[in-house]
């Protein structure tokens, strides 16, 4: 399951709802906004996403994870909008019977997400400048 959210991820109901009676493990990953990128002081970030396309592409990643690893469920929330330093930008939760596949699938999902999901990040710097990350 995947959703884009323009509200704080830490308050999202999925963080509590991510549970299953057969799950002995929940591996989570949280990506946060940091104050330094490649030596430049960042004041805040702006995320933009193509929602329908992101959901469709995440569904493929989820299917891959479910076929490669012995897991039960994957959920992911990605922020859009303006984020401050320390805010959670992405949250991934993977439920599995055991910790090994949960950790492995969680790593797989965040790595694929970063490569494939149509989400863009604009950094705003202390000197007033700003720029899209990975701009050609």
């Amino acid at each position: 399951m995947f959703t884009l959210s323009d509200c704080s991820i830490t308050a999202h109901p999925w963080l509590q709802e991510c549970a299953h009676e057969h799950a002995g493990a929940l591996a989570t990953f949280e990506g946060r906004v940091r104050s330094l990128n490649q030596g430049r002081a960042v004041t805040r970030l702006e995320y933009e996403g193509a929602e329908a396309l992101a959901k469709n592409e995440f569904a493929k990643i989820e299917k891959e994870a479910l076929s490669h690893f012995d897991i039960i469920e994957v959920r992911c929330i990605h922020r859009v909008g303006l984020l401050e330093i320390g805010d959670t930008a992405v949250w991934i939760g993977v439920l599995a019977a055991h910790r090994g596949p949960a950790f492995d699938a969680c790593r797989y999902v965040i790595d694929e997400l970063k490569k494939r999901l149509p989400i863009w990040k604009k950094e705003h710097y202390t000197d007033g400048d700003s720029g899209w990350i990975n701009a050609p």
Partner: peptide, 10 residues
């Protein structure tokens, strides 16, 4: 149709 610039999620 949507043109997708290099992505930077996560």
């Amino acid at each position: 149709v949507a043109f997708i610039p290099p992505v930077a999620g996560g």
